[in-house]
Design a protein around this nucleic acid. Sequence first.
DNA 1: TATTGTTATACTCTATAACTATA
DNA 2: TATAGTTATAGAGTATAACAATA
Lengths: 150, 150
Amino acid sequence: MSDDESPKASDDAGAMAAPDQPLIDALVQASFLTMGVLNRVAAAHDLSLTQLRVLAILRDRTTTVGELAGYLGLDKSTVSGLVARGEARGLLQRKPNPHDHRGVLVSLTAIGHRVIAEGVKQVATGLAPTLNRLDSQETSRLTALLMRLF
Amino acid sequence: MSDDESPKASDDAGAMAAPDQPLIDALVQASFLTMGVLNRVAAAHDLSLTQLRVLAILRDRTTTVGELAGYLGLDKSTVSGLVARGEARGLLQRKPNPHDHRGVLVSLTAIGHRVIAEGVKQVATGLAPTLNRLDSQETSRLTALLMRLF
DNA sequence: TATTGTTATACTCTATAACTATA
DNA sequence: TATAGTTATAGAGTATAACAATA
């Protein structure tokens, strides 16, 4: 998936939910809007959404390929390829795992850290036009309600 | 992207946002959870998320390939392939456009209608464990707040 | 034997460019 | 000329299966 951000696209994404269940409908719509922003931010750095997630996960962690696959919910062979491409781009690095010579430890490079830091800012900027429609009290309430879901 | 539904996956998706901006963080987390459900529902029917969106769009509409591309935010060549595969699966059909002999009109078959109807129900079921964490008043408030975003 | 990671293979998604048929 | 759709091509994402190295 590369992009899906037009108003129409969001509207019809919402059409995927049940119109008689307005919360589901609203949540699906909001999710497509959010994912659209994430996709655009990733694309702005010539990354896929998955690659951006990899950088986000590694932002404050060093992991094995297997752990990374667990975080992403993807097969280790898929992640192996993602890591290889990220390494080729200089965003991350593989180092031998001193505790287990079968495995490797994956971590961000300085470039990777810079890219994800910029990405986080751009996500905030991209969502601002939407989120600014709420006043500060509404913002607090929405945050609290969303956090109650987890 | 096929799946990403484990708790860990959702948590780290949230890590993509700015921790100092709790609304963004919560929204990103909720979005990954929602997209995970949508992906699983699609996968349960051996469809990609994009294909499920195509069915959702065509649920109450007949469109040209170009219009469908506009709704999805994808190139017409991409949609041409999506439509061809959907047609091969018997989910949708292409008919000559009587008003413009260059184009075609895409619509759902009875099977396609059945699949998207099931999918909508499954999305509701898949999100229920999460959304049921809210009582009816909270549900109303969250719905109203999310709808204010659009 | 079991596990970690990589590779080979195959398919879908996606965009760009070139093409055709029609307008 | 311009537009609608398809096809050819190419690259990324994905999973499954098979493999090598290590535990």
